[in-house]
Design a protein around this nucleic acid. Structure first.
Lengths: 129, 129
DNA sequence: CTATCATTTAGACGATTGTCGAATCAGGAG
DNA sequence: CTCCTGATTCGACAATCGTCTAAATGATAG
């Protein structure tokens, strides 16, 4: 699972018209992040110390039941935005930056140097602890 | 003179946890683009010669009725992603780059310095159809 | 006035979504 | 082994969404 296909999928959206398949694929990815809970989950995981967060830390921040949180995490996982790993009793999630960068490239201004996705990337993980 | 004030709404999503209001506002914006039709509309408008596209050009690219296209355009307009202007018989839409840049900044890699919104754009479009 | 382009409104329909409760799975602790 | 806790899966529910048809409205050209 979590097939990280680093495709050159996304020129900026203002560069050329998207084909139907491209648009459908990107819409699926965007639907995954177009939710307040999932957006917060993503940012909580991505900004957590060590680059990963335990589910037990996430659930407390919401007024939602555990199954609901699991549901949102699964959607993020299926979209290829996060990846989970079980260590002992707890499950830890971490961001898959390639997928997030796809979105960044899609909405990047035309003049941007697009530092990610197959280009002459100067640095992929600026913060690694 | 492109004296543009950069809308500094969003630190990258991996920088710090989003607050609930921030997440809700961004989710609303993301929902507007999380649809294949609207994604294609946005890219068709943004990549069209002159920076704007007539509705009459857009409708032909879809197997949808005119009210449905109008509906999607309205959602994009309400989200602040596009702006429409009537000239004679036809209505022309153009992208509002500040809003698109918000999304670009949200998913930008941490090391990337967001370039000025619409800054290096030399266009001042020659208004062609 | 008539014709055309685009939007709006209203209602309707199936599909998708977000949430919950209950059941289930996966590992420690005793 | 049996319990307990963390996390997921399953089944159901109301709410929202995308699309259509049909009709009405506004704006403009001829």
């Amino acid at each position: 699972m979590t097939a990280v296909t680093v495709v050159q999928c996304c020129a900026p959206i203002t560069r050329e018209p998207l084909s139907e398949p491209e648009a459908s694929e990107l819409a699926t990815l965007l639907k995954a992040v177009a939710d307040p809970v999932r957006l917060r989950l993503l940012s909580m995981i991505g900004s957590h110390a060590g680059g990963e967060a335990c589910v037990c830390d996430l659930t407390g921040a919401f007024d939602l039941t555990a199954p609901t949180i699991s549901h949102h995490l699964k959607i993020l996982r299926t979209a290829g935005l996060i990846d989970g790993e079980r260590r002992g009793t707890w499950v830890y999630y971490r961001i898959i930056p390639q997928t997030v960068n796809k979105l960044g490239a899609l909405f990047a201004p035309l003049g941007a140097a697009a530092p990610a996705a197959g280009g002459p990337a100067p640095d992929t993980s600026p913060l690694r602890t």
